[in-house]
């Protein structure tokens, strides 16, 4: 633990300094990504405003759902996405071997040495949107609910990092895994909308094998006091538990993949 505190912040610091060498490109990236998300949200807002609601969710409620989705995702992805999407290249080029000979967890090394401040644009968009949505929506605030919001966000970030890690880890055994991200992002897109608008089978997938309902819809529904299909009153505690559970499963899978690592050939 102490060793982690000595190494991990330093890794983040090194990565930041390396990134600063290309700060122009990074700032342009923040703007571009925020623009892109804002553009999609505008399209969704236009639908909701035109038709009044989607599955019983009005625009301010949708804004809470979308901002929760974006915030949870960017917090989790900052520790995982770019790093683990690259894992198949890292494996192919043999760089992963160099991590395996260090007395540090390769996961921690990868996650922190690539801690991605590229998500600043996402967060700059998500925070005001969420703040606005929370002032508009009818939320009965109390200290427990505030804690719940924070806890659910952490859980959302953990789900994101756990799934992205697991997909990346598959490259250790099967060499290629990047393509699986398109399946993840398919479900990820569904998580932007109220779960109740989807057919039962998709709802079931979204709360089990691909538990992305917990990263945005379930916590937003709990905050807005809406009924959650399939889960009912269990929804609130499950949204908090989903992140840690996904994390534990991902850790087990990561270990299994490390043991079955095939190397970069030769």
């Amino acid at each position: 633990m102490l060793a982690a505190l000595r190494v991990l912040p330093f890794l983040v610091q090194l990565h930041m300094r390396a990134t600063m060498e290309y700060r122009g490109a990074m700032i342009l990236g923040w703007i571009a990504m925020a623009f892109s998300y804002a553009s999609v949200y505008t399209a969704i807002a236009l639908i909701v405003l035109r038709f009044e609601n989607i599955g019983g969710w009005v625009w301010s409620e949708m804004a809470l759902l979308l901002s929760f989705h974006l915030l949870g995702y960017s917090l989790g992805a900052a520790f995982s996405f770019v790093q683990f999407r690259q894992l198949e290249d890292i494996v192919r080029l043999g760089t992963f071997d160099t991590l395996m000979v260090k007395p540090i967890s390769p996961w921690a090394y990868l996650a922190f040495s690539g801690f991605n401040i590229g998500y600043a644009g996402h967060i700059t968009l998500a925070l005001p949107l969420m703040t606005w949505a929370l002032t508009q929506a009818d939320v009965g605030w109390n200290p427990t609910l505030v804690l719940y919001l924070v806890g659910a966000l952490v859980s959302s970030a953990l789900i994101t990092a756990a799934i992205i890690t697991s997909i990346g880890a598959s490259a250790l055994v099967w060499v290629r895994s990047r393509h699986l991200y398109s399946i993840y992002f398919g479900f990820w897109e569904l998580a932007r909308y109220p779960l109740n608008i989807f057919p039962g089978i998709i709802q079931a997938i979204m709360v089990t094998v691909m538990p992305l309902a917990f990263m945005s819809y379930v916590p937003a529904a709990v905050l807005l006091d809406k009924e959650v299909p399939l889960l009912g009153p269990a929804a609130a505690p499950l949204a908090l538990a989903a992140g840690p559970i996904a994390t534990i499963l991902a850790m087990l899978y990561w270990r299994w993949c490390i043991r079955n690592y095939q190397g970069a050939g030769g």
């Binding site: 071997d97 395996m100 000979v101 043991r259 690592y261 190397g263």
Partner: peptide, 14 residues
């Protein structure tokens, strides 16, 4: 199989 042997000795491969 040179690299493979090194990778086993360094704990990379099982």
């Amino acid at each position: 199989g040179k690299s493979t042997m090194i990778k086993m000795m360094t704990g990379i491969l099982v």
